[in-house]
Design a protein around this nucleic acid. Sequence first.
DNA 1: AAGTTTTGGTTAAGCGCTTAACTATTAATT
DNA 2: AATTAATAGTTAAGCGCTTAACCAAAACTT
Lengths: 339, 339
Amino acid sequence: MKPTIYDVAKEANVSIATVSKVINNTGRIGEKTKNRVLDIMKELEYQPSSLAVALTGKKTFTIGVLVPDIANPFFAEVARALENNARKSGYALILCSTDYQLERENDYLELLIKKQVDGLIIATEPKDLKQFKNLNNRKIPFVMFSFDHLALESNVVTTDDIRGGYLAGRYLWEKGHRNIAVITETQRASGHLRLEGFKQSFVDEGMDFSNTLVIQAKSKIEEAKEAAHQILKMEKLPTAVFATTDLIAAVFINEARKAKVSVPHDLSVIGFDNTIHAEMVEPGLTTIAQPITDLARYAIHQLMESIEKPDMPAHRMMLAPTLIERESVRDLNKKNSLT
Amino acid sequence: MKPTIYDVAKEANVSIATVSKVINNTGRIGEKTKNRVLDIMKELEYQPSSLAVALTGKKTFTIGVLVPDIANPFFAEVARALENNARKSGYALILCSTDYQLERENDYLELLIKKQVDGLIIATEPKDLKQFKNLNNRKIPFVMFSFDHLALESNVVTTDDIRGGYLAGRYLWEKGHRNIAVITETQRASGHLRLEGFKQSFVDEGMDFSNTLVIQAKSKIEEAKEAAHQILKMEKLPTAVFATTDLIAAVFINEARKAKVSVPHDLSVIGFDNTIHAEMVEPGLTTIAQPITDLARYAIHQLMESIEKPDMPAHRMMLAPTLIERESVRDLNKKNSLT
DNA sequence: AAGTTTTGGTTAAGCGCTTAACTATTAATT
DNA sequence: AATTAATAGTTAAGCGCTTAACCAAAACTT
């Protein structure tokens, strides 16, 4: 059987309180006893049960992570970054993919509450606000990751999507593109924000954006292909396409090649997220990078803070995205140049 | 404060034992009281603390998942599939990326033991067997996922990698390929097994495999590129390349295109894993699919079994991979055909 | 030498639940 | 009507830990 604090205490001829104190380095314990207890703990391979520890009014050192789908590379990378940061503070992550389904969202939320997680990172947009407000009532701290919702009283750590869109737009403008098509992802609000910023960058240059083709698609291969076809079969092709996720952009590049449209020679493409797709596709995808590492670090940091100090006011931080230049956008100002 | 069983009991004018019984549907409780208690539980939004439940000698309903890196699409998909299955039984997953590092492996194992997980799914090859044998001693059930290790007494659920390699080899042979290069992944033993099977398929046809070029590379973009270059700069190109992971294969395809080598016209490529890379690359990658869904289902099932019946003998199951035909392999028997 | 601190512990209650053992009703049996 | 059996619930111990409150012995005071 797993040894308990009693086993250690008996072996060391002390009370369990003493053992507890050496474990936590609290109270006053003599050097000799301390070392004896320590030795015995090692010998018995004793590990305090975090269940019992948690039950005694302390923390569970567990945080719940709600993502739409961990199989999506973006969220997989997010999970990894969160994990790295949580680990440093001794926290474990319980992973939950909601799959954009209300039922799963509720089930998982209930599960996590039962498990007494110390806090949550929520990277999936709520289907049902009620459950999330419940978190507020129960004083369970959480931070919204990469999305925002004014109805929820909590920390927010997100990429500045509007700015990201703006960056993409300005870059395309600078490279001389005026005739553009956009494919926006529909499942997350960020898709709209990115479009918003993108549009703004053109409006700022005095361009009329109103008759720009905007297609909606989920960030799934099939829908992305369809959206790509819609664009590729136009009588007059745009000179550039802005896709609000890398997956959509990468699929577009592949479909373009199949349609004998060369990227970036005939058509430029810019994406968003800087996931592995951007690196894997050929030509490499110029894209707007979300600062995943920083997002994760701040998110965990904020969460830890509000776990420690429950009535800390909720911050909203928007981290700046950056443009990653690869080979998928052509500079129309340089004649005959391929890049 | 979070309501406890005492709050419910007081409100319902019964003892906590009664409440406990209606929660768990054990013992004999009258209809009226039962409903009253149920109502009050709902009203108070009472959720039993799984900590306390677990401490009372029952299960934690948590399982630990050890993967090398959740940001790797293959493991992300695995995690997702595991999650789906675990969820059905009310289990939560604690996610741990070992990053192939001994230290992280040990830290996480310790963490999981402290947390009293009911069992583990281990999808990362042990750096240090000692820690894993410890699991055996502590009677913590685990199943080895997609790798095998004879020193460890436990359930194994894995893809039949040898057979997968064989499948790939036979397919290439049937398509008329005789001059082949292989890029094998080095971080996981499965890479060698896949090569083994691949080789065997050629040997079975009476071909001498000994002077076939075999390059080693980690399943990382940079190393894959380098391996690709090694092959692409050969004076006489092989007719086909077998890469033991899709990532390596996809990178190869992209590098080939840059080198003006057309896949599959000039050179065929076959991969392994059937991850999202296989779908995203252009042309679509013909590859050996690991039966992730089935693997996950069996793994969770086996784990549940050995949680319920601790002295069940350990099974080793090897699930059959299947060949997924896309467009990256050319049939050399059909003259002038591109596929 | 008697009083005061300091040191190094111990005792016991409590965290939120489960469960074996028990008890008090009510119903069934003859 | 007396005995047995079933029903509906209660009591209390225990899971493995933390922590406030307490205490005995050793070490300083003056």
